[in-house]
Design a protein around this nucleic acid. Sequence first.
DNA 1: TTGTAAGCGTTATCAT
DNA 2: ATGATAACGCTTACAA
Lengths: 344, 344
Amino acid sequence: MKKKVKLIDVADAVGVSAITVSRVLRKPELVSEAVRLRVTEAVARLGYVPDPAARALASARTDVLGILIPSVTNNVFSNVLRGIYDRVEGLPFNIQLGNTRYSLLEEERLLGVFSRQRPAGLIITGLDQSHRSKTLLAQADCPIVQIMEIGGDPIDMMVGFSHRDAGRGATRHLQERGYRRIGFLGARMDPRTQRRLEGYEQAMKEAGSFDERLIVTTHRASTVTLGCELLGELLSRTHEIDAVFCNNDDLAIGVLFECQRRRISVPDDFGICGFNDLEMTAVANPPLTSVRTNREEMGRRAIEMLITRITGEPIDDPVVDLGFEIVARQSTAGPIAREGRASA
Amino acid sequence: MKKKVKLIDVADAVGVSAITVSRVLRKPELVSEAVRLRVTEAVARLGYVPDPAARALASARTDVLGILIPSVTNNVFSNVLRGIYDRVEGLPFNIQLGNTRYSLLEEERLLGVFSRQRPAGLIITGLDQSHRSKTLLAQADCPIVQIMEIGGDPIDMMVGFSHRDAGRGATRHLQERGYRRIGFLGARMDPRTQRRLEGYEQAMKEAGSFDERLIVTTHRASTVTLGCELLGELLSRTHEIDAVFCNNDDLAIGVLFECQRRRISVPDDFGICGFNDLEMTAVANPPLTSVRTNREEMGRRAIEMLITRITGEPIDDPVVDLGFEIVARQSTAGPIAREGRASA
DNA sequence: TTGTAAGCGTTATCAT
DNA sequence: ATGATAACGCTTACAA
């Protein structure tokens, strides 16, 4: 292994001082063109690459963007990640990913690890940080974006949407399509799922059809298999039910499969609405209604907001509402559809 | 923002030198118990946390484990990641994740970024690194694990399975169940997919039923929707076909959905075999046969191998074959099933 | 525009 | 068992 090329080696080769080489690399406009060209050439020729540790130590800053998400397997977050990696491509930043596993304690720990590195920026999931985490964030002295949802006072910046409104919107959609006894299936029950449930409850109360027995939740992670099970649980409680709002599409697909097995006709006898609008929903049989949320865009915007602040530009609005969209498909065509057919 | 607590501050508080505090933190057995206790107490009381940049600069080593995977959205890799994060939990290492987007050039670039940090270990996906990447890896001077597949000479260590054998095994399974005209649907066509295709070709040739027209591939990323499309393409070429081996489960689910729409009876008229055994396959209608590969275990083992080497212990075998398992479900019950019924 | 000097916070090395 | 001193490779602050 050949010896490492240092700043001073480049400087010696060109006949300038180390700081000049450093300047060429970071602030080329401060160096005369003649010197700049010679230095650039030498850097390339010698294959010099800066040592990030030395840089971090000397400048009290790194090129690290710390990202904290609660799960690496959940589709939702991998979509956000894709947006993040997309937007950061070609920029001189390094993504450092932390997996909190939906644990506030792990979030605190990772925040500690991250802040010691003096990151250039931080992205953190949700609004519900612990007190200690908030303290750490306040001391982090770098721009911070909370992603996935909006609401309350931002620590610094936010990009997301209202899960409460989305839950209410989905439930209303089912109501508008003529369903009355609408169940709620929820897995994981993280803060965002809980707010979707709140939205559901509000819509059901507004329609005067709220009934606790229609709500089935579990702290287990959501899977397709779990969707099958939860529908079973719901039906074992009552058969007076004509639709479900699933807190995500995995559950919804599971519910659809289970309906197929039980010969429950969707959407005629039973409406299904999912959440997240995974691509699969559009090609299921029948295609599933879902709530589309722009997760890649969320990742991209979060990075953009960080960069804007890192470069010292002003932010127009620290809170960005990306909204959501109910994508109505056949799975919620409604019991109305049957009446239509009956009268035809 | 209160001033940062440094090693020397702790040392002054206890009345020892900085290096002694450093020793207590890294090699406590070298320090007398009396001093050790006082130092530990002071560290806790003052809230001292080491600066990773200073550490890295002084010791020429970091606690970074660099991971290079081709996609953050692909289920397969998020499963591996989960295993990695699982196994590393509680250990004094930091995961640094790089997303190569299936690009050898991006892989090279990230490898450059990573090796400059003097990582404690590296995990890289697959066997097909570029020449330059191999040079960088050779110079990295840390343990390296290639994951996902095995074959050829390991750069250092390997954990995975033979995709060729798995492709051959899946195809044979279909043949054993009585299917003859078996199609192959492939997306992305990364090296591992290509080797699965090779296995398929081998099995088809061995059975004397190889036909190029039965192979439909695309470089697009695999999705459920794409599975629908690829089946359409295959059927537009020929209707003399009684099964498909899909290079992953997303495609397989899409094929199933498309069969439902076209009223093609699975498994009676058409067998479907997927790959990866996502949990969803078990609850589809009918449940889908797939090839199970233990991806979480792969992540865990990779970390274990790194750690073993980092701690200087010997590795029993640098190449770990995790194998695969054909999980036979109803979707490949075979045309035989119909004969059975017919004769009943 | 370029350079000098003094750190940045830790660990390696060599003493004691 | 503990300490003094010199790196580690770069940037900041100030000077020329």
